[in-house]
Amino acid sequence: MRILAALFAFATALPASSHEFWIEPPAYQIEADGIIRGELVNGQEFIGSQLAYLPQRFERFTVASGMRQANVENRLGARPALDIAPLAEGLHAISYQSRLSTISYAEWEKFVNFAEHKDFADYEDLHDARGLPREGFTEGYWRFAKTLVGVGHSAGNDFRTGLATEFVALDNPYTADLTNGLRVQLYFLDDTLADGQVELFEKAPNGTVDITLHRTNEDGIAVLPVKAGHSYLVDHVILREPSAQLAQQADIEWETLWAALTFGVPE
Protein backbone atom coordinates (compact mmCIF):
# COMPACT_ATOMS: atom_id res chain seq x y z
CA MET A 1 0.00 0.00 0.00
CA ARG A 2 2.90 2.38 0.68
CA ILE A 3 3.97 1.99 -2.95
CA LEU A 4 0.45 2.62 -4.24
CA ALA A 5 0.02 5.66 -2.04
CA ALA A 6 3.30 7.04 -3.31
CA LEU A 7 2.14 6.58 -6.87
CA PHE A 8 -0.91 8.70 -6.14
CA ALA A 9 1.34 11.70 -5.68
CA PHE A 10 1.82 11.62 -9.45
CA ALA A 11 -1.83 10.96 -10.31
CA THR A 12 -3.58 12.75 -13.14
CA ALA A 13 -7.04 12.26 -14.53
CA LEU A 14 -7.78 9.66 -17.17
CA PRO A 15 -11.05 9.25 -19.02
CA ALA A 16 -13.66 8.27 -16.41
CA SER A 17 -14.42 4.67 -17.21
CA SER A 18 -14.62 1.24 -15.63
CA HIS A 19 -13.87 -0.43 -18.97
CA GLU A 20 -10.94 -2.71 -19.68
CA PHE A 21 -7.56 -1.28 -20.61
CA TRP A 22 -4.97 -3.21 -22.61
CA ILE A 23 -2.00 -3.08 -24.98
CA GLU A 24 -2.84 -4.35 -28.47
CA PRO A 25 -0.06 -4.88 -31.03
CA PRO A 26 -1.01 -5.10 -34.72
CA ALA A 27 1.30 -8.15 -34.83
CA TYR A 28 2.18 -10.32 -31.85
CA GLN A 29 5.11 -11.87 -33.71
CA ILE A 30 7.63 -9.91 -35.76
CA GLU A 31 10.91 -10.56 -37.56
CA ALA A 32 14.18 -10.09 -35.70
CA ASP A 33 14.78 -6.77 -37.49
CA GLY A 34 11.18 -5.60 -37.08
CA ILE A 35 9.59 -2.97 -34.85
CA ILE A 36 7.41 -3.72 -31.82
CA ARG A 37 4.25 -1.65 -32.09
CA GLY A 38 1.10 -1.55 -30.01
CA GLU A 39 -1.86 0.63 -29.16
CA LEU A 40 -2.97 1.50 -25.64
CA VAL A 41 -6.68 0.73 -25.73
CA ASN A 42 -9.57 1.56 -23.41
CA GLY A 43 -12.89 -0.12 -24.13
CA GLN A 44 -15.17 -3.09 -23.76
CA GLU A 45 -15.30 -6.58 -25.24
CA PHE A 46 -11.79 -6.25 -26.74
CA ILE A 47 -12.85 -3.21 -28.81
CA GLY A 48 -12.08 0.36 -27.82
CA SER A 49 -10.43 3.71 -28.33
CA GLN A 50 -6.69 4.08 -28.88
CA LEU A 51 -4.81 6.37 -26.53
CA ALA A 52 -1.70 8.39 -27.28
CA TYR A 53 1.70 8.24 -25.57
CA LEU A 54 1.28 10.63 -22.64
CA PRO A 55 3.78 10.18 -19.79
CA GLN A 56 1.51 12.08 -17.37
CA ARG A 57 -0.88 9.13 -17.57
CA PHE A 58 1.51 6.37 -16.53
CA GLU A 59 3.94 5.61 -13.75
CA ARG A 60 5.96 3.09 -15.76
CA PHE A 61 6.04 1.72 -19.30
CA THR A 62 8.78 -0.85 -19.86
CA VAL A 63 9.94 -3.61 -22.17
CA ALA A 64 11.89 -6.66 -21.00
CA SER A 65 13.39 -9.69 -22.70
CA GLY A 66 15.60 -12.13 -20.86
CA MET A 67 17.93 -10.09 -18.65
CA ARG A 68 17.46 -6.90 -20.67
CA GLN A 69 15.00 -4.14 -19.77
CA ALA A 70 14.36 -0.62 -21.01
CA ASN A 71 11.80 2.14 -20.70
CA VAL A 72 9.35 2.57 -23.56
CA GLU A 73 9.95 6.03 -24.98
CA ASN A 74 8.13 7.87 -27.74
CA ARG A 75 7.11 11.33 -28.88
CA LEU A 76 4.56 13.12 -26.72
CA GLY A 77 1.12 12.35 -28.14
CA ALA A 78 2.42 9.67 -30.54
CA ARG A 79 0.29 6.82 -31.77
CA PRO A 80 0.79 3.98 -31.57
CA ALA A 81 2.09 4.63 -28.06
CA LEU A 82 4.34 1.56 -28.32
CA ASP A 83 6.81 1.89 -31.19
CA ILE A 84 10.25 0.51 -30.33
CA ALA A 85 13.07 -1.65 -31.62
CA PRO A 86 13.35 -5.09 -29.99
CA LEU A 87 15.96 -5.66 -27.31
CA ALA A 88 16.98 -8.99 -28.86
CA GLU A 89 15.45 -12.05 -30.44
CA GLY A 90 12.99 -13.88 -28.23
CA LEU A 91 9.92 -13.27 -26.10
CA HIS A 92 9.34 -9.66 -25.03
CA ALA A 93 7.10 -8.60 -22.13
CA ILE A 94 5.85 -5.03 -22.32
CA SER A 95 4.29 -3.65 -19.11
CA TYR A 96 2.29 -0.52 -18.39
CA GLN A 97 1.35 0.84 -14.97
CA SER A 98 -1.06 3.77 -14.90
CA ARG A 99 -1.35 6.54 -12.39
CA LEU A 100 -4.46 6.69 -10.24
CA SER A 101 -7.72 7.78 -11.86
CA THR A 102 -11.19 8.06 -10.39
CA ILE A 103 -14.79 7.43 -11.32
CA SER A 104 -17.83 8.55 -9.32
CA TYR A 105 -21.06 6.63 -8.96
CA ALA A 106 -24.23 8.72 -8.97
CA GLU A 107 -26.37 5.56 -9.09
CA TRP A 108 -26.03 2.45 -6.94
CA GLU A 109 -27.16 0.21 -9.81
CA LYS A 110 -24.11 1.16 -11.88
CA PHE A 111 -21.79 0.00 -9.10
CA VAL A 112 -23.85 -3.18 -8.60
CA ASN A 113 -23.57 -4.07 -12.28
CA PHE A 114 -19.82 -3.51 -12.23
CA ALA A 115 -19.30 -5.43 -8.98
CA GLU A 116 -21.32 -8.42 -10.11
CA HIS A 117 -19.69 -8.49 -13.54
CA LYS A 118 -16.23 -8.59 -11.96
CA ASP A 119 -17.28 -11.14 -9.31
CA PHE A 120 -16.60 -9.07 -6.20
CA ALA A 121 -17.58 -11.01 -3.08
CA ASP A 122 -19.81 -9.44 -0.40
CA TYR A 123 -19.43 -5.97 -1.88
CA GLU A 124 -22.89 -4.86 -0.73
CA ASP A 125 -22.42 -5.96 2.89
CA LEU A 126 -18.93 -4.43 2.97
CA HIS A 127 -20.19 -1.17 1.49
CA ASP A 128 -23.01 -0.88 4.01
CA ALA A 129 -20.87 -1.99 6.96
CA ARG A 130 -18.51 0.91 6.25
CA GLY A 131 -21.43 3.33 6.33
CA LEU A 132 -20.88 4.44 2.75
CA PRO A 133 -23.64 6.20 0.79
CA ARG A 134 -25.25 4.34 -2.09
CA GLU A 135 -24.83 7.29 -4.40
CA GLY A 136 -22.22 9.97 -4.76
CA PHE A 137 -19.21 7.80 -3.85
CA THR A 138 -15.94 7.44 -5.73
CA GLU A 139 -13.67 4.61 -6.86
CA GLY A 140 -9.99 5.06 -7.59
CA TYR A 141 -8.50 2.67 -10.13
CA TRP A 142 -5.09 1.57 -11.34
CA ARG A 143 -4.29 -0.16 -14.65
CA PHE A 144 -1.63 -2.87 -14.86
CA ALA A 145 -1.44 -3.97 -18.50
CA LYS A 146 1.00 -6.35 -20.14
CA THR A 147 1.48 -7.78 -23.61
CA LEU A 148 3.71 -10.55 -24.98
CA VAL A 149 5.43 -10.11 -28.34
CA GLY A 150 7.58 -12.74 -30.04
CA VAL A 151 10.63 -11.48 -31.92
CA GLY A 152 12.45 -13.72 -34.41
CA HIS A 153 12.52 -17.24 -32.94
CA SER A 154 10.26 -15.92 -30.10
CA ALA A 155 11.82 -18.31 -27.56
CA GLY A 156 11.82 -17.48 -23.88
CA ASN A 157 9.68 -17.42 -20.77
CA ASP A 158 7.32 -14.85 -19.37
CA PHE A 159 8.05 -13.62 -15.85
CA ARG A 160 6.87 -11.15 -13.24
CA THR A 161 7.71 -7.63 -14.36
CA GLY A 162 6.92 -5.91 -11.06
CA LEU A 163 3.27 -4.92 -11.54
CA ALA A 164 1.17 -4.88 -8.36
CA THR A 165 -1.25 -7.35 -9.93
CA GLU A 166 -0.10 -9.33 -12.95
CA PHE A 167 -0.71 -12.35 -15.12
CA VAL A 168 2.31 -14.49 -15.98
CA ALA A 169 1.99 -16.86 -18.93
CA LEU A 170 3.41 -20.22 -17.87
CA ASP A 171 3.45 -21.32 -21.53
CA ASN A 172 5.05 -19.34 -24.35
CA PRO A 173 2.12 -18.66 -26.73
CA TYR A 174 4.46 -18.55 -29.75
CA THR A 175 6.50 -21.70 -29.22
CA ALA A 176 4.61 -24.06 -26.87
CA ASP A 177 2.16 -26.83 -27.69
CA LEU A 178 -1.16 -25.29 -26.66
CA THR A 179 -3.34 -28.30 -27.47
CA ASN A 180 -4.42 -28.49 -23.83
CA GLY A 181 -4.65 -24.74 -23.37
CA LEU A 182 -2.37 -21.96 -22.17
CA ARG A 183 -1.67 -21.63 -18.45
CA VAL A 184 -1.57 -18.24 -16.78
CA GLN A 185 -0.76 -17.52 -13.14
CA LEU A 186 -2.32 -14.54 -11.40
CA TYR A 187 -0.39 -12.55 -8.80
CA PHE A 188 -1.36 -9.84 -6.36
CA LEU A 189 1.60 -8.17 -4.67
CA ASP A 190 3.86 -10.99 -3.42
CA ASP A 191 1.31 -13.83 -3.56
CA THR A 192 -0.58 -15.82 -6.14
CA LEU A 193 -4.32 -15.22 -6.18
CA ALA A 194 -6.49 -18.32 -5.74
CA ASP A 195 -10.14 -18.67 -6.84
CA GLY A 196 -10.05 -15.49 -8.87
CA GLN A 197 -12.32 -14.83 -11.83
CA VAL A 198 -10.44 -14.65 -15.12
CA GLU A 199 -12.30 -13.08 -18.02
CA LEU A 200 -11.00 -14.24 -21.40
CA PHE A 201 -11.70 -12.21 -24.53
CA GLU A 202 -10.99 -14.11 -27.74
CA LYS A 203 -10.74 -12.18 -31.01
CA ALA A 204 -11.04 -14.14 -34.26
CA PRO A 205 -9.27 -13.09 -37.49
CA ASN A 206 -12.55 -11.58 -38.74
CA GLY A 207 -12.75 -9.37 -35.64
CA THR A 208 -15.56 -11.15 -33.80
CA VAL A 209 -15.06 -11.51 -30.05
CA ASP A 210 -16.13 -14.32 -27.73
CA ILE A 211 -15.99 -13.95 -23.93
CA THR A 212 -15.66 -16.78 -21.42
CA LEU A 213 -15.12 -16.90 -17.66
CA HIS A 214 -12.55 -19.05 -15.89
CA ARG A 215 -11.16 -19.36 -12.36
CA THR A 216 -7.72 -19.74 -10.87
CA ASN A 217 -6.93 -22.81 -8.76
CA GLU A 218 -5.29 -22.86 -5.33
CA ASP A 219 -1.97 -21.91 -6.97
CA GLY A 220 -3.44 -18.98 -8.85
CA ILE A 221 -3.32 -20.85 -12.17
CA ALA A 222 -6.03 -20.86 -14.82
CA VAL A 223 -5.89 -22.98 -17.98
CA LEU A 224 -7.28 -21.02 -20.93
CA PRO A 225 -8.57 -22.61 -24.14
CA VAL A 226 -6.93 -20.94 -27.13
CA LYS A 227 -7.13 -21.27 -30.92
CA ALA A 228 -4.57 -20.81 -33.67
CA GLY A 229 -4.83 -17.46 -35.42
CA HIS A 230 -6.76 -15.78 -32.60
CA SER A 231 -5.66 -13.04 -30.20
CA TYR A 232 -6.52 -12.81 -26.52
CA LEU A 233 -7.12 -10.39 -23.68
CA VAL A 234 -7.04 -11.82 -20.15
CA ASP A 235 -8.56 -9.66 -17.40
CA HIS A 236 -8.94 -9.69 -13.62
CA VAL A 237 -10.01 -6.91 -11.24
CA ILE A 238 -9.40 -6.58 -7.50
CA LEU A 239 -11.73 -4.47 -5.36
CA ARG A 240 -10.60 -3.40 -1.90
CA GLU A 241 -10.96 -0.73 0.73
CA PRO A 242 -8.19 1.84 0.24
CA SER A 243 -5.79 2.69 3.03
CA ALA A 244 -6.83 5.63 5.17
CA GLN A 245 -4.00 7.68 3.70
CA LEU A 246 -4.92 6.96 0.09
CA ALA A 247 -8.64 7.45 0.76
CA GLN A 248 -7.93 10.89 2.18
CA GLN A 249 -5.42 11.91 -0.49
CA ALA A 250 -7.53 10.77 -3.44
CA ASP A 251 -10.97 11.32 -1.85
CA ILE A 252 -12.09 7.78 -2.72
CA GLU A 253 -14.18 5.13 -0.98
CA TRP A 254 -13.13 2.09 -3.05
CA GLU A 255 -9.96 1.08 -4.86
CA THR A 256 -9.69 -1.26 -7.86
CA LEU A 257 -6.60 -2.77 -9.45
CA TRP A 258 -6.95 -4.08 -13.00
CA ALA A 259 -4.66 -6.76 -14.44
CA ALA A 260 -4.62 -7.33 -18.20
CA LEU A 261 -2.55 -9.58 -20.45
CA THR A 262 -2.69 -9.75 -24.24
CA PHE A 263 -1.08 -12.23 -26.62
CA GLY A 264 -1.71 -13.95 -29.95
CA VAL A 265 -1.56 -17.58 -31.00
CA PRO A 266 0.17 -18.33 -34.32
CA GLU A 267 -1.62 -19.99 -37.22
Rank of each mutant, 00 (worst) to 15 (best):
F8L: 15
A9M: 14
A9I: 12
A9D: 15
T12W: 14
P15M: 06
S17A: 00
S17Q: 03
I30F: 11
A32F: 10
R37C: 14
V41R: 02
N42R: 11
Q44Y: 13
F46M: 05
I47V: 15
G48P: 04
L51T: 01
Y53S: 09
P55Y: 02
T62M: 13
R68T: 09
E73Y: 14
R79I: 02
D83E: 07
L87V: 01
A93K: 01
I103H: 13
S104W: 09
S104M: 11
E107T: 01
E109V: 10
E109F: 12
K110L: 12
V112I: 13
E116P: 01
E116M: 14
E116F: 12
F120H: 09
A121R: 13
D122H: 13
R130P: 00
P133T: 00
E135K: 08
T138Q: 13
G140Y: 00
G140S: 07
W142Y: 14
R143G: 05
T147C: 05
T147A: 04
G150Q: 02
V151N: 08
S154D: 08
S154V: 02
G156N: 00
D158I: 13
R160N: 12
G162R: 06
L163Y: 08
A164S: 06
A164R: 07
T165A: 12
E166W: 07
E166C: 04
E166D: 10
V168M: 10
D171G: 10
N172I: 04
L178H: 04
Y187Q: 11
Y187I: 13
D190Y: 15
D191K: 11
T192Q: 11
D195T: 12
Q197P: 14
V198G: 02
V198H: 03
K203L: 09
A204T: 10
P205Y: 03
T208M: 06
V209W: 06
V209T: 04
T212R: 09
L213K: 07
H214T: 10
H214R: 11
H214I: 02
R215S: 11
T216C: 04
T216H: 04
T216F: 06
N217V: 03
G220P: 12
G220T: 00
L224V: 03
L224H: 08
P225M: 12
H230S: 03
S231R: 05
S231P: 00
L233H: 02
V234K: 04
D235E: 15
V237M: 12
I238G: 10
I238C: 03
S243M: 04
S243P: 00
L246I: 02
A250R: 08
T256A: 07
L257P: 05
W258R: 11
A260G: 13
V265F: 09
P266R: 01
E267M: 14
